[in-house]
C-alpha cells in the first residue's frame, strides 16, 4: 500500500471483485485525505424506471467499497475485515445520467473495529445524495497495524 495516493492502486482492488466490475466502479482520485470512488450511471442500476433515478442498492455497494478503502487508508496495510453494519440516509435522489462519487473517513480504529463515515454526491461534495456511517470488524484476530495518520 505504498502508492495509496495513486488511483491505480485502488483500481487494482476494485478489479478483484466481480460485483464492483458489474457496477463499473472506479477510483476517481486519491490523496492524503483519502480516495474518491466513482459509480458511473448505467441503465441497469435504475431503481425507478419513471424517473431514471439510481436504485439505492447501487449506492449501498458504493459506500461499502469506499468505506472499506478508507479503513485501509488509515491502517496503511491490508487487514482482513468484514462490514459489521452500514446505515445510509438518502437526502435526495441522484440525478439521472450523472456519475455518483463517494468519499469516506475512517475516524476511529480499535484493535477489533473501524468506525467510518462518509457521503455520496454527484455535482458537488457539499450537496450530498446520501450520508452514511458504518463499522467494520477485523476478522483475523488482533491486527498488528501501526497508526500513521490521525483522522482529519
Amino acid at each position: 500500500m505504498t502508492d495509496h495516493n495513486h488511483p491505480e492502486a485502488w483500481n487494482q482492488f476494485l478489479a478483484i471483485a466481480p460485483y464492483t466490475g458489474l457496477l463499473r466502479m472506479e477510483a476517481a482520485s486519491a490523496s492524503d485525505s483519502g480516495c474518491v470512488i466513482a459509480l458511473p450511471y448505467h441503465d441497469d442500476l435504475v431503481g425507478d424506471p419513471d424517473s431514471g433515478v439510481l436504485h439505492g442498492g447501487a449506492i449501498t455497494a458504493l459506500m461499502d467499497v469506499c468505506f472499506g478503502f478508507s479503513v485501509y487508508f488509515r491502517t496503511r496495510k491490508f487487514v482482513p475485515m468484514a462490514t459489521l453494519d452500514l446505515r445510509i440516509d438518502y437526502l435526495r435522489p441522484a440525478q439521472p445520467h450523472r456519475k455518483v462519487y463517494a468519499t469516506a473517513n475512517c475516524y476511529k480504529l480499535t484493535q477489533d473495529l473501524a468506525f467510518v463515515r462518509g457521503h455520496a454526491y454527484d455535482d458537488a461534495s457539499d450537496n450530498p445524495i446520501s450520508t452514511s456511517v458504518g463499522i467494520f470488524m477485523f476478522t483475523a484476530g488482533k491486527p498488528a497495524f501501526t497508526e500513521t495518520k490521525k483522522s482529519s
Binding site: 471483485a17 466490475g21 449501498t60 461499502d64
Partner: peptide, 21 residues
C-alpha cells in the same frame, strides 16, 4: 457476478444490501 471476495468466496456485501433493499 455477485461475488465480492473471490478468495473465500463470498457474496459482495453491497450485493446483499442492495438485494435486501
Amino acid at each position: 457476478k455477485l461475488i465480492g471476495n473471490p478468495a473465500l468466496p463470498a457474496l459482495h456485501g453491497g450485493a446483499i444490501g442492495g438485494y435486501m433493499e
